[in-house]
Computed example of a mutant assay.
Amino acid sequence: MKIVAIETGRLAAPLKRPFKTALRTVNAIDDVIVRIVTDTGQVGLGEAAPTAVITGDTIGSIVWAIEEVIAPQLKGMAIENIEAIFEKLDHCLVKNSSAKAAVDIALYDLYGQLYRAPLYQLLGGYRRQLSTDITISVNDPEQMARDSVAAVQLGYDTLKIKVGKDPALDIERMSLIRQAVGNDIKLRLDANQGWQPKEAVRILQRLEDRGLEIELVEQPVPAHDLEGLKFVTDHVTIPVLADESAYSPLDAVKIMQLRAADLINIKLMKTGGIRHALQICAMAEVYGVECMMGCMLEAKISVTAAAHLAAAKPVITRLDLDGPSLCATDPLPGGARFDEHRITLTDEPGLGFDAALCPGFTERPAPGKM
Rank of each mutant, 00 (worst) to 15 (best):
K2S: 05
K2E: 07
V4R: 04
T8Q: 08
T25W: 05
V34Y: 00
I36F: 06
T38Q: 02
Q42R: 12
A52Q: 12
G56A: 00
T58P: 08
G60S: 11
A71E: 07
K75F: 04
K75R: 14
F86Q: 13
K95F: 12
S97K: 07
A99S: 11
Y108D: 03
Q113W: 10
L119T: 01
Q121T: 11
L122N: 03
L122S: 03
L123S: 02
Y126R: 05
M144Q: 15
K160R: 13
D170V: 08
R173V: 14
Q179D: 12
N183L: 13
L187T: 08
L187K: 02
A191V: 03
Q196A: 07
A200F: 01
V221D: 06
E227M: 12
G228N: 01
K230Y: 08
D234W: 01
H235S: 09
A242Y: 09
M256V: 10
L263C: 09
I266N: 02
T271K: 00
Y287V: 02
C295L: 03
L297Q: 09
I301C: 11
A312E: 04
K313A: 00
V315S: 03
V315L: 01
L321T: 08
C327K: 09
C327E: 14
P331N: 10
P331Y: 09
P333Y: 02
R337S: 12
E340M: 13
L345G: 00
P349W: 01
F353Y: 07
C358R: 03
G360Y: 08
P365Y: 03
